[in-house]
């Protein structure tokens, strides 16, 4: 689904965002992207939606070289990639409902479709009581959930989540992870950037670690429990974490 081959991103003034990163993610995989702050996690996300162009290397998504997508086609490409932004990026002049609806409106979604899908995804993300609030009337965690709802309302085949639990308490974080897990089980490829080491340990999914823009660890976790139901998954997540020695 995703293929990075020798991708570097140099910002002006010598800042290195990504340095010769090579990795790939298969269809329907659930992958964590970890690393210290400034290690390049968001850079990977931004490259994947063509918000940035790589300085060198090639990026392929669903077999397609991103460099070949013309400026005109970029919006259509982006509709296939849901993104939960680290800074939410909600539209300040729209209510929760309208923010989520916008993702459908850009694709030419009908009113009927919007009336049907938006309340659904908002219920799923636990925002049913906040439909008519504006973003500045929401807590950080609530804004984050709106961002998740908007990213997934289209059911894109690829979902990128940059720190989706950064502002949430542990219990809500588990809910969000459960939601992502469920989305993943419907066949969506998911890439989650996070600092939350405990969460990563518990989820037991593949982990890619970045350090100073380089991939330093690529670990398909041994206890890859693919066949867990969502309920079992949640139970395991809630149990006290048992850290393997050495981590």
């Amino acid at each position: 689904m995703i293929e990075f081959r020798g991708v570097s991103k140099h910002y002006g003034a010598g800042d290195v965002g990504l340095d010769q990163a090579t990795f790939s993610v298969s269809r329907e995989e659930f992958v964590f992207l970890v690393g210290a702050t400034g290690s390049g996690k968001s850079t990977v996300m931004r490259l994947l939606i063509k918000e940035l162009e790589p300085s060198s290397g090639t990026i392929r998504v669903a077999g397609r070289d991103l460099a070949d997508i013309t400026r005109k086609r970029v919006p259509f490409y982006r509709r296939n990639v849901g993104v939960v932004f680290q800074d939410f990026k909600l539209l300040p002049n729209r209510t929760v409902y309208d923010n989520v609806a916008y993702a459908l409106q850009v694709t030419g979604g009908t009113r009927k479709e919007i009336r049907h899908k938006v309340p659904d995804i908002l219920r799923l993300t636990g925002l049913s009581t906040k439909l008519h609030n504006y973003p500045d009337q929401l807590s950080g965690g609530e804004q984050q959930r709106v961002s998740i709802a908007r990213a997934f309302v289209n059911h894109p085949p690829l979902l990128l989540a940059d720190e989706p639990t950064g502002n949430l308490d542990p219990e809500t974080s588990i809910d969000i992870m459960r939601l992502l897990y469920r989305i993943n089980r419907t066949g969506t490829t998911i890439l989650v950037a996070t600092h939350d080491q405990a969460m990563v340990d518990k989820m037991r999914r593949r982990v890619l670690e970045l350090s100073h823009g380089q991939i330093v660890r690529d670990e398909a976790a041994g206890l890859y429990a693919r066949d867990e139901t969502t309920r079992e998954f949640a139970q395991r997540m809630r149990s006290p974490s048992i850290r393997p020695p050495g981590l």
């Binding site: 259509f76 982006r78 993104v83 932004f85 990026k89 002049n93 850009v106």
Partner: peptide, 11 residues
């Protein structure tokens, strides 16, 4: 706002 619209796929 315009930037965000573009990032979620608006032409």
């Amino acid at each position: 706002e315009v930037e965000v619209m573009k990032l979620v796929g608006a032409t």
